[in-house]
Design a protein around this nucleic acid. Sequence first.
DNA 1: GAAAGTAGTTTCCTTTTGGATACTATGTAT
DNA 2: ATACATAGTATCCAAAAGGAAACTACTTTC
Lengths: 120, 120
Amino acid sequence: MKKKAEINNTPICQVRMQAISDAMSILSGKWKFHILGTLMEGSKLGFMDLLREVDGIGTKMLSKELRDLEINHLVSRTVMDTKPITVEYAITEYGKTLAPIIDGLANWGIAYRKSILNTK
Amino acid sequence: MKKKAEINNTPICQVRMQAISDAMSILSGKWKFHILGTLMEGSKLGFMDLLREVDGIGTKMLSKELRDLEINHLVSRTVMDTKPITVEYAITEYGKTLAPIIDGLANWGIAYRKSILNTK
DNA sequence: GAAAGTAGTTTCCTTTTGGATACTATGTAT
DNA sequence: ATACATAGTATCCAAAAGGAAACTACTTTC
């Protein structure tokens, strides 16, 4: 009777799915949330600061992820004309709109860890 | 003056970062949110239903992602003893706790798309 | 008995992602 | 002049992720 029928064919679902894809493509990767989370704590950090703060990341990935975040206006990059030229990375106002999602994810992860300990 | 100092070294931050890693490792991949989102809409779907609903996914990925989600108790898999043996996939109560995160992500993605159109 | 529907698995291949290492370029302190 | 700090880039490589197509196995319908 039913064949090729689709729930997700409604315009609302299509938009939703597209939105999730958009968000994920911007936020995907191993380090984005860590970098954003760190910048939300200590605003205005230099490249080397971030390299120390984000545990395990290397220069190549940090550089690449920061560039991605900057392109998407989630992080700002300001070159200071100090003598040993420094760069200040900071989260933008727009980047801050991700705070609820990052918090939600962190809290969910904490709850998940607890639930595993309980069921074991 | 300051060297090797770390903001992220506080126990609270460590736990938070770990939690984000946990959550991401469970939810990473191209299809998890789409599958979960679909199952949140139409509860109880068969393998072939999902294959039709989740646009673009193939059998290999669907099978693998469903297995991952089942292992992490986000999705239940029930074999029905109907004549052409069918399987019912459904989101678990635990899986439903992800609804706010998925909604948050979808809404953020929608807002992001709008903001791009405005700035262009 | 051939086709089509159920639910997958297997194999092979390409792309993407990420890491280690070395290097550039500039400036400061010793 | 040597060592260390700034901020990266470039290169090479390994591993992970993902896709296409073919195949298994069982049942029902035409």
